[in-house]
């Protein structure tokens, strides 16, 4: 039997593949990477592209599309941390700026001082209401 290596392909939102493979091909940042069992420990970024797995005892290859991510290789284990969104420094920066801008807009009407007393009163009121409702409920049963 041919040597195999354990491969996990996961994204933040779901687990995409977990199992054995004889050979893995990934779109590495510096070019296509082919990983065989016993590869030396490697840590790199991968680009958007296709991950190809040669499964044991099967002619057909398993294919996954990834939008980029990270790759970790240990001698008997390959982990692909796939991104769910296309990432890029500029793209991320734009998202951060957008979030900041919207927060600033929302903050335009804020009062200057932290108003703990009022906030606490507000929360206390909400909690009192909830417990009152609970008590009423218990009594009605």
């Amino acid at each position: 039997m041919a040597m195999t290596i354990h491969v996990d392909v996961v994204s933040a939102e779901e687990s995409i593949y977990s199992g054995l493979a004889e050979f893995v091909v990934l779109p590495g940042e510096a070019g296509e990477l082919g990983i065989l069992p016993g590869h030396m420990p490697l840590m790199t970024r991968i680009k958007a592209g296709t991950v190809r797995l040669k499964l044991p005892n099967q002619d057909a290859e398993e294919l996954f599309f990834v939008a980029g991510g990270m790759l970790e290789v240990q001698p008997n284990r390959v982990t692909v941390l796939a991104d769910t969104a296309i990432r890029g420094k500029d793209l991320d920066e734009a998202k951060a700026l957008d979030a900041k801008k919207r927060a600033e807009e929302a903050m335009a009407s804020r009062s200057s001082e932290m108003d703990y007393v009022r906030a606490q009163a507000e929360l206390a009121e909400a909690i009192a209401q909830l417990s009152a409702i609970q008590k009423l409920r218990r009594r009605s049963h």
């Binding site: 939102e13 991104d83 969104a85 900041k100 919207r102 927060a103 929302a106 804020r110 108003d115 906030a119």
Partner: peptide
């Protein structure tokens, strides 16, 4: 906002599915 805290970033309207 009511508390007057310094909100530096926000995201609302995530819907039912969290998207990274």
């Amino acid at each position: 906002q009511r508390l007057g805290a310094n909100v530096v970033s926000k995201v609302t309207g995530l819907g039912d599915t969290p998207h990274l």
